[in-house]
Design a protein around this nucleic acid. Structure first.
Lengths: 149, 149
DNA sequence: GAGCGTATGTCAGAATGCTGACATGGGTCA
DNA sequence: TGACCCATGTCAGCATTCTGACATACGCTC
């Protein structure tokens, strides 16, 4: 190992660790979903629709942390592939409720299993109380960041 | 508020919360750095060089969670603007050590202050022991995700 | 010394996501 | 009712990042 040390002292920064963890999770999820021909946003969209049927394009975008323009492009391809359907019958403003088709539900099943495997590997070494504390603490961080000032 | 409920039940998923927190942090940091004309990767590069002078392009890329091609483009612009200098004098393989210039250090000062404000706002509501536990737990998650299998 | 594997720097093309813009629908308030 | 504001869906252009590829440099093994 005749190369320069690669470790960084930023390991004590919550912000850096957050980005590091998020990056590691993204890489693992991409690796798990690639064999299925799906991206993370693709999977996230299906998962959101399974838990909250009828979400609109903009709501899905917020839930998947992308712009509504990006989600719109994705939804068009998902609809073309018969994974979701958008029924504009209801009077919910301009928003068009979106729902999973049977084919979408089936594709989600395999993807959800792959993603659960990754998440389990991540939280497996954690004690139950540590895991609960992590969830509570992260929520506090999110709320603090989104506070007005 | 005559609109559909936007909350998602995924709040109990560590993976989703991790992405949510990372996204919120990214948005806050972008907002803090935009007035300074800097991006997050731009700032990260300078911060890494301040803590570890002489890091190479590839090492900086790993530290900032981007590809070495992307970091290469950034380094060229930073060098053009006189914020960093790359001296290939040492015999460290093909790697070219990079160092901050005085101008780079000065720009980093203001940026670092802005970023610290954001991070402080994030961890402010946390008890000291919760904050320490968060760091330790996140590190466990990262290590678990990067484990071979 | 030769061969092999790995890491690095760099260039070019492709893919992805974002910003800007516009029209539509709905609610609020004077 | 009309003016205003906000959210939504959607189109087009732009920016940024990534993927693929190649040459170079070092270490290890035979």
């Amino acid at each position: 190992m005749g190369q320069v040390r690669n470790g960084i002292d930023l390991d004590t920064s919550v912000g850096y660790l957050l980005k590091e963890a998020s990056s590691a999770l993204r890489i693992s999820m991409e690796a798990a979903l690639r064999p299925l021909g799906m991206t993370i946003t693709h999977y996230s969209c299906l998962e959101l629709l399974a838990q909250r049927p009828g979400l609109s394009n903009s709501q899905l975008a917020r839930g998947a942390f992308v712009t509504r323009q990006s989600m719109n492009v994705l939804l068009q391809s998902l609809e073309r592939d018969g994974l979701v359907e958008r029924v504009g019958d209801e009077a919910s403003g301009r928003a068009i409720p979106t729902r999973l088709t049977d084919r979408g539900r089936e594709q989600l099943r395999t993807a959800s299993a792959a993603v659960k495997t990754v998440e389990n590997r991540m939280v497996e070494p954690l004690a139950p109380e540590d895991r609960a504390a992590l969830v509570a603490t992260l929520r506090q961080c999110v709320d603090a960041l989104r506070a007005p000032a």
